[in-house]
Amino acid sequence: MSTAPGPYESGRERDRDEEGRARNQRPRDGLGRPLPYGTDGVARQPEGVVRTPEESVAEAQALLDAGRPFHAHEVFEDAWKSGPPAERDLWKGLAQLAVGLTHAARGNTKGGARLLLRGAGAVGGWQAGPNGQKRPHGIDLAELIRWAEALADGLKHEQTTVDAAAQAPQLRGNATT
């Protein structure tokens, strides 16, 4: 095996984005798992998109409803990176919840439960923080925390399979706003 830089054994050069940073361009499935080159995959979420909080919540909810929590996580990650510093923990917690659902749907129940609880703690901490908002950007934090804790409990005790679309949270609860 050679240690010299160069093409991978597949004959491909390392994937890079427009700025020259290493970026894996392999197609991915709906849960974000890499597929072999040349396989049809699910369209990836563009990175670095600046959206309003309402646009972020709506887009993430549509992705969650479609069973694509990995892609919803990327929307939340954009919001945490581009939003106001005071809201970073909220968006980061939402991203952790989406990744927790991703891991659970991929069959990693232990890691999924851990991330769901971490995300619930993060959004719960934000709820109790200086703003003390119960529904920031219309997100029903109390219901979201209940959802995460219930799913994590199921993963720890009996549930071994998760359908990401069927078990996706409703970010705004039953509210229409």
Rank of each mutant, 00 (worst) to 15 (best):
F70I: 01
A98R: 05
V57T: 14
G121A: 01
T39A: 12
A79M: 14
G132H: 11
A66E: 06
P46C: 03
A43C: 04
G132F: 05
L94C: 15
G124A: 04
A43D: 14
R26Y: 00
V42L: 12
L101C: 09
N131Q: 10
A72W: 00
H103Y: 14
D29P: 13
T102K: 05
G111Y: 01
G119D: 02
L101T: 07
E47N: 13
D29M: 05
Q25M: 11
T52G: 15
Q133N: 08
L116G: 10
T109N: 10
R33S: 07
K81Q: 15
G48C: 15
A86W: 12
G32R: 01
R68P: 12
P85Y: 02
R68V: 03
A122G: 14
P53M: 04
I139E: 00
W126K: 06
L94M: 15
K134M: 02
E59H: 11
P36K: 08
D89T: 06
H103M: 09
T102L: 01
P34G: 04
N108D: 15
A72F: 05
Q25D: 06
V123T: 08
P69V: 02
G41S: 13
D65I: 11
P34M: 02
E54T: 15
D65L: 13
R26N: 04
D65S: 14
G138K: 07
G112H: 00
R33V: 11
D40N: 15
G41N: 06
F76D: 02
W91H: 09
A128K: 14
G38F: 09
P130R: 13
G93N: 00
D65A: 15
N108A: 09
G124M: 00
V99I: 07
G124R: 01
G121I: 00
R114A: 12
D89W: 02
D140T: 12
A122I: 03
I139Y: 01
K81S: 09
P46G: 02
E59R: 15
A104M: 02
D89L: 10
G93L: 00
K134Y: 04
P34K: 04
N131H: 10
V49K: 08
G107H: 12
L117G: 08
F70T: 07
G83L: 01
A72H: 12
P53A: 08
H103C: 03
V99K: 03
G111Q: 00
P130W: 11
G41Y: 11
T39P: 05
L31G: 13
P130E: 13
A120C: 11
P53I: 08
T39C: 06
V42T: 15
F76I: 02
W126I: 01
K110F: 14
A86C: 03
G107I: 10
G125F: 09
L35K: 11
L115S: 03
A60G: 13
L97H: 08
R88H: 14
A58F: 08
V75C: 08
L101F: 06
P46W: 03
G111L: 01
H73Q: 12
R135N: 12
A60D: 00
P34F: 07
I139K: 02
